Deep mutational scan, measured.
Amino acid sequence: VTLFVALYDYEARTEDDLSAHKGEKFQILNSSEGDWWEARSLTTGETGYIPSNYVAPV
């Protein structure tokens, strides 16, 4: 399991995006899409895309 933590708040801009709150942890499901990674929030269980530069490894 690849875990990352949000460094900043991010507000989803499309229905495919996933909002993130600073300190929230995510499981990365797919990081092969360049700057946008598919992730699952460990807080809400929701999945979507987050900007890779907004997260760091735990």
Rank of each mutant, 00 (worst) to 15 (best):
S31A: 13
G48Q: 00
T2C: 15
E46A: 13
T44A: 02
R40V: 09
A6F: 08
P57R: 07
A12F: 03
E15L: 11
G34P: 14
L42Y: 06
T2G: 11
N30C: 11
T14L: 09
R40E: 04
I28W: 03
A56Y: 08
G45S: 05
D9W: 06
V5E: 08
E11K: 11
D9F: 07
R13P: 07
G45M: 06
V5Q: 06
Y8D: 07
K25C: 14
S52V: 07
G48C: 07
F4H: 05
R40D: 00
L29V: 07
Y54C: 14
D16R: 15
E38K: 13
F4E: 00
T47F: 07
S19D: 08
L29S: 05
D9V: 05
E11Q: 12
L29C: 08
S41W: 03
T43E: 14
R13V: 12
P57E: 08
D17M: 13
A20V: 15
Y54L: 15
D16I: 13
N30G: 09
E46F: 11
I50R: 00
K22Q: 08
S52A: 13
N53V: 10
N30F: 08
A20K: 01
E11R: 09
T14E: 08
F26H: 00
D16K: 15
P51I: 04
F26A: 00
V1Y: 14
V1D: 12
D35I: 10
R40P: 00
E15Y: 09
I50A: 02
W37C: 05
S52I: 07
E15N: 12
A12K: 09
V5K: 03
S19N: 10
Y49N: 07
H21G: 05
E24Y: 04
V58P: 03
G48S: 01
V55I: 13
P57G: 04
G48A: 02
K22D: 01
W36A: 06
N30R: 08
S31F: 15
H21Q: 11
L18F: 05
E11W: 10
L3Y: 13
T47Y: 08
T47H: 07
D16T: 15
Q27V: 15
N53C: 15
V5T: 04
W37L: 10
Y10N: 00
E33M: 14
A6H: 01
E38L: 15
A56G: 08
S19H: 09
T2P: 11
T47E: 08
T47N: 04
R13H: 09
L3D: 05
A39V: 15
L18M: 10
S31G: 09
Y10V: 06
E15I: 11
A12W: 04
K25Q: 12
A20G: 03
T2Y: 12
A12N: 04
V1I: 13
Y10C: 05
F26P: 00
L7H: 02
D35L: 12
R13T: 11
E33W: 11
L3F: 12
W37N: 01
Q27K: 06
Y8T: 06
S31P: 10
Q27C: 14
V1F: 14
Y49I: 08
L3R: 04
